[in-house]
């Protein structure tokens, strides 16, 4: 079982702030997009070969380890991840870590990059202050 050290959410937030401060939003987005070719390449490959069930499995694993409140469902051909209590936002607020003003944007950028690499699309509507979001994933039109 993976080790869960939630202070790393605060370290990520600090990293995003540093990137924005030194390289602007474009530099921050470039860094995050590149993760689809490195850290998230195995996930993108799995999504390409196995479809949305791979992503559902990924999110169920993540939220079973991290806690919070989230559920997966399907709306037609789209996978919908509804997060009612984001473990990252919740932990950072609870422990007084600075939450980067655009912290939740990283979810949109990484999701879009991973999906693009696999022939899928993604969207996210979030309320960062409340620690809630709804993420959608579907096969891109060919």
């Amino acid at each position: 079982m993976a080790n869960v050290h939630k202070d790393f959410h605060g370290a990520l937030s600090f990293g995003l702030l540093f990137l924005e401060e030194h390289y602007g939003p474009d530099g921050c987005a470039e860094f995050l997009r590149e993760l689809a070719d490195t850290v998230y390449k195995p996930l993108a490959d799995k999504l390409r070969h196995e479809g949305l069930s791979a992503l559902r499995e990924h999110w169920e694993t993540v939220f079973s380890l991290e806690g919070g409140g989230a559920s997966c469902s399907y709306e037609g051909d789209a996978l919908v991840l509804t997060v009612n209590q984001c473990p990252a936002i919740h932990h950072m607020k609870q422990h007084g870590y600075a939450v980067a003003p655009h912290f939740c944007e990283h979810t949109r950028i990484v999701n879009e990059a991973v999906c693009r690499a696999a022939g899928y699309s993604a969207s996210v509507e979030f309320d960062q202050a409340a620690g809630r979001c709804v993420q959608r994933f579907w096969r891109a039109a060919s």
């Binding site: 050290h5 202070d7 959410h9 850290v39 993540v62 473990p87």
Partner: peptide, 9 residues
């Protein structure tokens, strides 16, 4: 969300 379990990478 980037999971804290993926953070080191």
């Amino acid at each position: 969300m980037i999971s804290c379990t993926e953070f080191i990478w």
